[in-house]
């Protein structure tokens, strides 16, 4: 009778032995590796300078790192779920997403440490926002493999962060190609609207207002709903009344009573909608309000629904660019 009947248990035991004997990554920053060990380098992450393999072979990704590393064709062996990004994935990435082992849920608190250990990664990339990092037991994960935390602080930071995540996972080549494709597309749309968009003072109503509090989300430059449209030449005027750190530096939640004063100067107003074009309840609350119907931009018919505002990778943001192009199309005919 075999003592270890389950391959997973066997893997976990081997891993535990490896941890106990201290044979993880660990050479210096020069990249020289002792015989039999992977070459390493020092990587600057939110959790400090971390020694990681130069070419990791088994990567676990969570949060925002999931779509970034799927697109970059990183050697993933486990991921967190990332339901909000499913409509933005290509068919190929979606198929890979479905196949991969899920080692964490949607929130950082749903991290399954045993499942991560069973995946036997040689690198763990945590892509959660910095304030949420405290919900993860990094010390416990570091016993399994080197951990790099690379999370967004402000929504528009996905451009740099997704590159950093791909870099850590040794998957930069495809990333840079996709980024080039995005930049070309953005430039083309920018030229298309060059005569109209820069003249408009725009405002954006986001999907994260809270009806139960009677408020709405207004997004400024650099926020989820606006940052890709900015690449197409849009400009969202104004700024938050009080900076609250992170996403609250670029978006705020005024009472619905403040809708007329908040958006009175806007020449045009964009708003976030679901991937299928339906209006989320928190946005519908604003759109159904009599205060909305009286806004100058609304009376002038200058409202623009944006799909795919959750994009956090270049591949996904290309879908957002198409959606922005589609929404702004009436500007070219008026």
């Amino acid at each position: 009778m075999s003592i270890v009947r389950s391959p997973r248990l066997a893997g976990a035991l081997v891993l535990a032995l490896a941890v106990a004997t201290g044979c993880g990554s660990g050479s210096g920053d020069t990249g020289a590796a002792p015989e039999g060990k992977a070459e390493t380098r020092v990587f600057k992450a939110d959790n400090g300078d971390i020694t990681i393999p130069v070419s990791p072979k088994r990567v676990v990704a969570t949060g925002y790192a999931v779509p970034a590393l799927l697109e970059a064709d990183a050697p993933l062996v486990g991921i967190s779920t990332w339901k909000r990004g499913l409509p933005l994935m290509t068919a190929e990435d979606l198929a890979t997403y479905e196949k991969l082992a899920k080692v964490a849920g949607e929130s950082a608190a749903e991290t399954n440490y045993e499942a991560i250990a069973e995946a036997q990664p040689d690198l763990i990339v945590i892509g959660v926002p910095k304030p949420v990092l405290a919900d993860i037991d990094l010390a416990r994960l570091e016993k399994v493999a080197p951990v790099v935390a690379i999370g967004p602080n402000v929504p528009s930071a996905w451009r740099d962060l997704s590159r950093k995540q791909a870099d850590a996972a040794g998957a930069l080549s495809k990333f840079d190609a996709t980024r080039g494709e995005y930049q070309t597309k953005a430039e083309s749309i920018k030229k298309k609207y060059a005569d109209v968009l820069p003249k408009l003072k725009l405002a954006h109503v986001g999907a994260y207002g809270e009806v139960a509090k009677g408020n709405f989300q207004r997004e400024f430059n650099g926020s989820w709903g606006t940052n890709v449209a900015q690449d197409a030449g849009a400009n969202y005027y104004g700024q938050v009344k009080v900076k609250g750190g992170g996403g609250r530096d670029v978006s705020e939640y005024p009472s619905i009573e403040e809708l007329p004063t908040a958006l009175a100067e806007a020449d045009g107003i964009s708003y976030s909608v679901n991937a299928d074009g339906s209006v989320p309840p928190n946005v519908k609350y604003v759109l159904d309000s009599e205060l909305w119907k009286n806004l100058p931009a609304v009376k002038a018919g200058k409202t623009y629904p944006f799909r795919y505002t959750e994009a956090a990778t270049y591949q996904a943001a290309m879908k957002t660019l198409d959606a922005v192009d589609q929404a702004f199309a009436p500007l070219l005919t008026k």
């Binding site: 139960a212 509090k213 009472s255 609350y285 159904d288 309000s289």
Partner: peptide
Amino acid sequence: GSLAGREQ
């Protein structure tokens, strides 16, 4: 329980 946002 809230009275806000119920006007519609």
